[in-house]
Design a protein around this nucleic acid. Structure first.
Length: 275
DNA sequence: CGAACGACCTGCAGGC
DNA sequence: TGCCTGCAGGTCGTTC
């Protein structure tokens, strides 16, 4: 489910409802997500209140007095806000119940998500090596160009590496490369500065447009209020294999790169030097 | 060191 | 209808 726009949509949905709320209790129904949920949370968190709600890459961060709750939605995770006594369903693994009765509930069928706690989240092993946020000025063509020299990995793999830049997953990598007219297999180290300028612009444009539409709902993404995202209507290559390219009308092709489906236009995204 | 790949887990679509 | 296979938005840890 979630790439950066979906996580950002989730954050914007929950933030106004959880900020400054006092935690009443924490219910863990299924503690084995990607990593075990710390069993100290139900003891540690009650009585504390949410001071800030933010995002780093695809990690949601809820800060309380003694530290920060770190939430990752994995492939199929979703947070929703519910009213008091809302009965849990099959994949509702964690509830954070507030004193006013509201419930912040994590639902995650595939359990690739995570709920962790850290007194200094940015020093946490999962967060400390993350690359820049794609929508900030730190993420620019000079940075990508320098970072990519001598790298032989496909440019698609390169921009999906969270140590290079956070938040670009399979959908938005495909869309951004199409927008920048770059072949996904082009070696990252051989992409020119000019091409990176176009790619950076494309990534920012695509992510911003998706956030505006509430993210992409393929099959199961819903925001914290249960609404779908409408960016799927704007996807130009992802999931359109065999359908005509919106620019040249040739059929969209597909490759597997690192075992991930990679849709692209054979004509518009021609490679200069694929090895 | 970087790169490739398996692993985690469930649900669903499609083929037989 | 039902079983089997492959695939899915992520990304860490292991192996080469």
């Amino acid at each position: 489910m979630p790439e950066l726009p979906e996580v950002e949509t989730t954050l914007r949905g929950i933030a106004p409802h959880v900020l400054h709320q006092t935690i009443h209790s924490v219910i863990i129904r299924h503690p084995t997500l990607r990593w075990p949920i710390p069993n100290s949370l139900p003891v540690l968190l009650p009585g504390q209140h949410i001071q800030t709600a933010s995002r780093r890459g695809k990690y949601l961060l809820l800060a309380v007095q003694t530290g920060t709750i770190i939430i990752h939605l994995g492939m199929s995770g979703r947070l929703s806000l519910l009213k008091k006594n809302s009965s849990p369903k099959k994949h509702d693994h964690v509830d954070i119940v507030f004193e006013n009765g509201d419930i912040l509930r994590l639902t995650d069928p595939r359990r690739f998500g995570a709920v962790l706690f850290s007194s200094s989240p940015f020093a946490h092993p999962l967060l400390k090596n993350l690359g820049p946020e794609p929508l900030t000025a730190d993420f620019n063509a000079d940075y990508l160009f320098k970072k990519s020299r001598q790298k032989k990995v496909p440019v698609k793999t390169f921009i999906m590496n969270s140590q290079v830049v956070v938040g670009v997953g399979n959908i938005y990598a495909a869309e951004s490369l199409f927008s920048a007219k770059l072949h996904p297999l082009q070696a990252a180290g051989e992409v020119s500065l000019i091409q990176y300028q176009l790619l950076v612009k494309s990534i920012k444009k695509v992510l911003n447009a998706s956030i505006k539409q509430g993210g992409t709902t393929l099959k199961d993404f819903l925001d914290s209020e249960g609404n779908k995202g409408y960016f799927i209507l704007k996807l130009k290559v992802y999931g359109r294999e065999g359908e005509p390219c919106v620019t040249c009308f040739n059929p969209i092709a597909s490759l597997r790169i690192n075992n991930r489906a990679s849709a692209y236009c054979l004509h518009c995204q021609s490679a200069c030097s694929i090895k």
